[in-house]
Computed example of a mutant assay.
Amino acid sequence: MADTVEHFTAIYQRACERKGGEAALKALISKPLPPAKLAQLPDSLLLAELTKKVFQSGFVWRVVRQKWPGFCELFFDFDIEKVLLLSDEMLEQKAADPRIIRNLNKVFTIRDNALMIFDVQQQEVQQKVQQEQQSFARFVADWPTENIIGLWAYLKKHGARLGGNTGPYALRAIGKDTFLLTQEIEGYLRAYNVFDGGINSQRSLKQIQQQFNLWQQQSGLSLQEVSQIVALSCGENHVGMQR
């Protein structure tokens, strides 16, 4: 990690100046859900958000939003058990329905990611002596944020099409505390030589995680807040403009 990386106080002050003051900056910053609330979310909601981000990846987000009611209707509001009962033939039929975005490979990820969620449920039940209700939401909520890249890796390995920025964006959408590697943040990190390889290599991700952990210690803020403030402190962000 580079010794010249700014203290978070300097980043925060610059973001305030660029956005028109501290009050204006705070109005642009959102916070993650508390882990206790995240753990209570239904797994159907998590599967829905994973699906939404898979379909938004490389596509016009507005179109995905417009067709989202069709997704909910065709996939039983993302009920995990019902989705897992869908055969390949059923998925092929649904992938041809004009109510959704007709992409067969991405449609198959819905069942694949439902299986990942179901597998976590079963693993957690087996590991618990007390049979309290377990869920994928609790699994995500309990994951330590100081190793959030480990959760990214888990989604990439065990899920479908959740690599790159798709998994992190899905986590942000459901309320899990995570930083994002936006263009602004990548540009900042490269300018200060926080990492020196490909941004998605394990070595680079560990270096980036270490830097965000340091900023979090310096600021007392969540990774999500730190991430947004860093992004708003550089690049093309100016007064009155959001990312």
Rank of each mutant, 00 (worst) to 15 (best):
L38M: 11
L38K: 12
A39C: 11
A39T: 12
D43S: 10
A48Q: 13
L50I: 14
L50R: 02
K52P: 11
K52C: 05
F55D: 03
F55A: 10
Q56H: 02
S57T: 10
S57H: 06
G58A: 01
V60M: 03
V60A: 04
V60T: 03
V60L: 02
R62G: 01
R62E: 04
V63E: 00
V64I: 11
R65H: 13
R65A: 14
R65D: 15
P69V: 04
G70D: 10
D79I: 06
D79F: 04
D79Y: 06
K82G: 00
L86P: 14
L86G: 15
L86M: 15
S87W: 01
E89N: 02
A96T: 02
A96S: 10
A96E: 11
D97A: 04
D97T: 03
D97I: 06
L104S: 07
L104D: 03
N105Q: 14
N105I: 11
N105W: 09
V107Q: 07
F108M: 10
I110G: 05
D112P: 03
N113K: 02
N113I: 05
M116K: 05
I117M: 09
D119A: 12
V120R: 04
Q121N: 15
V125F: 08
V125Q: 09
V125C: 09
Q127L: 06
Q127G: 07
K128F: 04
V129F: 12
Q130P: 15
E132Y: 14
